[in-house]
Nucleic acid binder design. Structure first.
Lengths: 196, 196
DNA sequence: CCTGCGCCTTAACCCAGGTCAAGCCAGGGT
DNA sequence: ACCCTGGCTTGACCTGGGTTAAGGCGCAGG
């Protein structure tokens, strides 16, 4: 077993026999990415995903009008991949970019399907993953429905303290659905109110 | 088999043997709701869900500050229930209310668990459901990130033409994340631009 | 028939955040 | 030392939508 810590983490989502994990490791490949390098680019087939071993990624959607918005940040232990497009078997609409020099453990979707056919545990895990992703999106929906940009910012840092200092402010803005300029104003407003 | 059409619909999501469906029907109960009646109220245990046979429902979240926002509308053939809370085994934070006299087919979560243990098909179905819910939320996230309220409105009617005339405008506003007043302005603005 | 209620509209005013444009600052390359 | 370049800030101005409050309209009940 090359990645026992990863195994433990996944096993918290759904029961996962160690021997199955060993099979998974056998088909997975490690990949290193430099800062700014893309794990996935828009238009690519969404046929692979990965677990982050080291580093931070951003999932960027470039809208038809050219605006960039950020769907998620992903750090150590989390999954990267164009999940929605994979489910729909469509080409990726998103870019996934390393914000730091990073290492990931890559799985091909078809290899994973083979694992699924070999043991139900993988199917259960996939279900858990779907449910977790749903919960994340639902929380975000809630924030857009009830909170101002400033409140969303506060929430963001409460929920992702480990990203502090690792992501540029403009990306936080694109994640919150506002502009770089808007975010800068919010931050300076708060600085004035709390001169601490 | 009491509801063959429902069976067909579910079977499009994941393979589902008819005999399993018969078992499911055996534990399901039909329930009729009047207009304004609640299928679920905030604070209730999220231990049941249902398929809409007839009518329309709205999922309302009452925020701490008292604002109402609408998470979803659900019509014939769709699922109602506090899905997020069920996954987390928490009491419901949402109310689910009939907007018309309605009929639903109710399942207890524990009965469904029994079905899952009896045959993998239910687990696969549950996975598909989770994935579909994820896709819906992701689409909505996208809209909040890239679109103005007016564009979201247009999208809404394109995606839910069957709801036309069945839901009050204020609810559409609460779904879009704006106020009744704001929506009214948007609508009249558009009327002027397209005097059709 | 009037009354009240539910739902929608309109108007006046306000403010958060967008847009455009001009800097600022730090770090890297030459 | 120089100048880029990338990332952040600031200012002036504009606009979409919030807030409050005042009607309007249709319909159910008395």
């Amino acid at each position: 077993m090359r990645f026992p810590k990863l195994f433990e983490r996944l096993a918290t989502l759904a029961p996962l026999p160690p021997e199955e994990w060993v099979k998974a490791e056998a088909v997975a490949k490690e990949q290193a990415l430099e800062k700014r390098e893309l794990f996935l680019r828009p238009g690519d087939a969404a046929d692979r995903f990965a677990v982050v071993l080291q580093g931070v990624f951003r999932g960027v959607r470039v809208s038809p009008r050219g605006g960039e918005s950020i769907k998620a940040f992903r750090a150590e232990g989390e999954l990267i991949g164009a999940y929605a497009e994979m489910l729909q078997r469509r080409p990726s609409m998103t870019a996934i970019e390393a914000l730091e020099p990073s290492r990931v453990l890559v799985f091909q979707a078809r290899d994973f399907q083979t694992l699924e056919q070999g043991h139900v545990c993988w199917e259960r895990l996939a279900r858990r993953v779907a449910e977790q992703h749903f919960l994340l999106k639902e929380r975000r929906e809630q924030e857009f429905l009830e909170l101002s940009a400033e409140e969303r910012l506060v929430n963001f840092w409460e929920e992702h303290p480990h990203l502090k200092g690792r992501i540029p402010q403009r990306d936080v803005a694109a994640y919150l659905g506002i502009t770089e300029v808007g975010l800068s104003r919010i931050v300076s407003r708060r600085r004035k109110r709390t001169p601490a």
